[in-house]
Amino acid sequence: MSDSPTEATKQPPMKVVKLRHPWRIVFAVVLLAAVAVFVIDAAQREAFDWPSVGKYVFDQRVSMAAGYTLLLTVLAMVIGVVLGIILAVMRQSPNPVLKSIAWVYLWIFRGTPVYVQLVFWGLLSTIYTTVDLGVPFMEAWISFPTEVLFNAFWLAVIGLALNESAYMAEIVRAGLLSVDSGQHEAATALGMGWGKTMRRVVLPQAMRVIIPPTGNEVISMLKTTSLVSAIPFTLELYMRTRDISVEIFNPIPLLIVASIWYLAITSVLMVGQYFLEKRFARGVGVRPDAGAGPVTASMSAVELEQTDAEAAIGAKHGGDAR
């Protein structure tokens, strides 16, 4: 900062010899060789049955199943995130009734395995055979069987979403807690109510903390969808590839096919996360005027004040308060 350009040019630049890391190169070469051996070996191994992998990876049944898996993931996550935000906000609410509801919900849905929950959702139409409208414990006015209502796909979505919302609630709560209490106070002092403060001030700032673990949850959800056979819903990727492997009496190539699809979808989702993180990083990052320090900045402001003599708050620079 203090060096003026003329001073800098006086001294010839010194030659810098970069630190070398020869062992890194050795390690990388060894690693590459090992990978090459594995790949060449794998390519020749009968058990992997690569022709079948190639045959089924773009099989319509498989790509349809991948579509279902993606749809399950997206729907369950969207509902899960929305419910999770509502639950987290309820837990932070000054209203003790809302607080308790959220706590009990979390206790149940986090405290039982998702597989067990999914089996329960599958048995819903067995437990509640009819939907009755009317006064409880009296004869119903209207009654219709629940089988019409419950379809395996939507039960899978609901089952996954409700379980997910309990975890999302804690992630969102962590985000809310990460926001400085002064933010809440400033918004309150401006006359904003609790709800508006949450929506406009606290949640947008919490998003930065919420998004990375949520990305984790999305990827985790993608794989958890393979459990919906408990409903049973069997059109998703894992069950579909298993069905095909039973047909051809060889599970290995179809496992590879399923893995390829899971990896492909995960990669796409990671790209989405990158853009979301960028969106919510507003206000943190590089200064637009990287050169100008606070001193020059305040000086330009003072100049501006002096020119603005008309303003009611014209700064009088005669006697400084200190």
Partner: peptide, 29 residues
Amino acid sequence: ARVGLAERADYYPAHLSGGQQQRVAIARA
């Protein structure tokens, strides 16, 4: 403009000095 920050209107708080931030806070109130 009254608090002398017309030209910093589009800056985020992280990009303002403490004194500038406090002047924005006064304008906000």
